[in-house]
């Protein structure tokens, strides 16, 4: 079957022959490898995308289910140059291996769009579904605390 949807603001078409995830289709068919596959069970957040305005794990979205929906991946976050969320992370040492980074960018962008001035606890609660194995989260928290201060 053919699934048509809006992907990062552009019409996209995918050919679906089995109950694969949106993540697989993004990575293997639509040449958007920014969303990462690290657990395939919604326990790490590396594959986070925005589906119809809400962040979800794209590994748990059946690709066949996104017909007529709108999907934004890390590749569709921002435009020219880094967004404030990305810049904050870059300048605070919040990236190491980077495998969790795209998911964190997607979730943090959603957080700051809804609440430009989150508290530390709100930052942590928003990112509770994004596992990072390298940083111990310290630099990630600091980067967003700093961004929250700058935007307040």
């Amino acid at each position: 079957m053919i699934v048509e949807f809006l992907l990062n603001g552009e019409p996209a078409t995918a050919r679906i022959v089995s109950p694969v995830s949106l993540l697989d289709v993004l990575r293997d068919q639509l040449e958007l490898p920014g969303s990462k596959n690290a657990c395939e069970q919604g326990e790490c957040g590396s594959c986070s995308v925005v589906l119809d305005g809400e962040i979800v794990c794209s590994c748990l979205v059946m690709a066949a289910d996104v017909g007529d929906s709108e999907v934004v991946t890390v590749e569709g976050i921002g435009g020219d140059g880094l967004t404030p969320v990305q810049r904050a992370m870059h300048h605070s040492g919040a990236v190491q291996c980077g495998f969790c980074t795209p998911g964190i960018v997607v979730v943090a962008a959603d957080l700051f769009a809804r609440n430009p001035n989150p508290t530390t606890l709100e930052i942590k609660e928003a990112l509770a579904g994004n596992i990072c194995r390298c940083t111990g989260y310290g630099a990630i928290i600091r980067s967003f605390e700093k961004l929250a201060r700058e935007t307040s």
Binding site: G34, M89, G98, T101
Partner: peptide
């Protein structure tokens, strides 16, 4: 850092 943040860094995967 920038390619990793933009999702364009190429991993073995």
């Amino acid at each position: 850092g920038i390619p990793k943040l933009e999702g364009s860094f190429e991993y073995a995967q």
